[in-house]
């Protein structure tokens, strides 16, 4: 059926609702890969012939908005993407383990880009996530690094306290696989960033309704209210563009690459700025670790970096012919 309706269908909303209900009682950042795997939502987009539920790219995007909103374990997204790569390379045992949560994946992020050339991932990395395998993914391709390809592991105090972070060096000669994981990964990062932006907007607005100073809720001061209105605008832009990009990527649209890039950049901006505003609106409460407002900014920074950072997406956005 054709037509213009970029919004989620009732069926799609039901899938997302199912996840939301199942995670409803968990605290912020409480949804870990084991819980979500038990619910069948790790690798939800993996095709049935590889043992996955075979949800569409658009469904997967919507689920990732929810994961982002809840600051769910980073291993959930890494597992889904790693399962795609494992399926492409025929490692069905790994696919099954990742979906079941018996083996987990994290991300390997380079210190300053993957460098020139197509030699494969090299050099020093941060490993993000408590995992058995780590996904290196960029516009050059994707690679799964097991512990045999990593050396000098040294735990660090991570930016995102919810994600275990380890400094390491890649050894051996892993190669990039051209698997189509990068556009999907980018879309999912955009979706998670969008979820962070929405959550930060809502937390900021909720606090501004109840925190009273000068005998009024602080949300009745325009200096506060207008910053939150801007959060609403940024979240709406990120959400609409994520929907648009998901459809383009799912349907193989000619400009899918640009649409995904636009989704990534819009969501990066929304997540970082909304999370910052949320901290600001919370004042000293936001500066302390009590409210958890800081968690959203930290997750936004981590996701932004895992997605390759804004500069390469900006270059890509301008380079494409429109």
């Amino acid at each position: 059926m054709n037509g213009i309706d970029i919004l989620p269908s009732d069926d799609q909303l039901e899938i997302v609702d199912g996840l939301t209900r199942a995670l409803a009682d968990l605290p912020v950042a409480g949804a870990d890969v084991a819980t979500v795997a038990a619910l069948g939502f790790v690798g939800a987009g993996v095709a049935p012939e590889f043992g996955g539920p075979g949800l569409s790219i658009a469904d997967e995007m919507l689920l990732n908005i929810e994961f982002g909103r809840r600051l769910a374990g980073i291993e959930i997204l890494a597992g889904g993407l790693a399962a795609r790569l494992a399926a492409a390379s025929g490692d069905l045992a790994l696919v099954a383990d990742l979906i079941a949560g018996t083996r987990t994946a994290g991300f390997a992020a380079p210190m300053s880009g993957w460098g020139e050339g197509d030699a494969g991932p090299r050099g020093e990395v941060h490993l993000v996530g408590a995992a058995d395998v780590f996904l290196a993914v960029s516009h050059k391709g994707a690679a799964l690094l097991d512990l045999g390809l990593l050396d000098g592991l040294e735990p660090v105090e991570g930016m995102d306290g919810g994600a275990k972070t380890v400094r390491a060096k890649i050894i051996g000669d892993p190669a990039w696989t051209q698997s189509g994981v990068w556009p999907l990964a980018s879309l999912c990062f955009a979706a998670q960033l969008c979820g962070v932006a929405m959550a930060a907007r809502d937390l900021g607005a909720d606090y501004a309704k109840v925190r009273v100073q000068f005998d009024k809720p602080i949300g009745s001061f325009q200096g506060v209210a207008h910053q939150l209105a801007d959060c609403a605008v940024r979240a709406e832009a990120a959400y609409s563009q994520a929907l648009f990009a998901a459809i383009a990527l799912r349907d193989g649209a000619e400009d899918a690459g640009f649409q995904v890039t636009a989704a990534v950049l819009t969501a990066m901006d929304a997540a970082v700025r909304n999370a910052t505003t949320n901290i600001q609106v919370h004042g000293a409460m936001g500066y302390s670790s009590i409210t958890g407002a800081h968690l959203y900014l930290k997750r936004a920074v981590v996701l932004r970096q895992l997605a390759g950072g804004p500069r390469q997406h900006e270059r890509a956005a301008l380079a494409v012919r429109r």
């Binding site: 990120a238 563009q241 648009f244 640009f258 956005a317």
Partner: peptide, 15 residues
Amino acid sequence: RHRVEAQALRAMSYA
């Protein structure tokens, strides 16, 4: 950024 934001605006109006 202008190009991306113009597209995001388009997406908002499509929504």
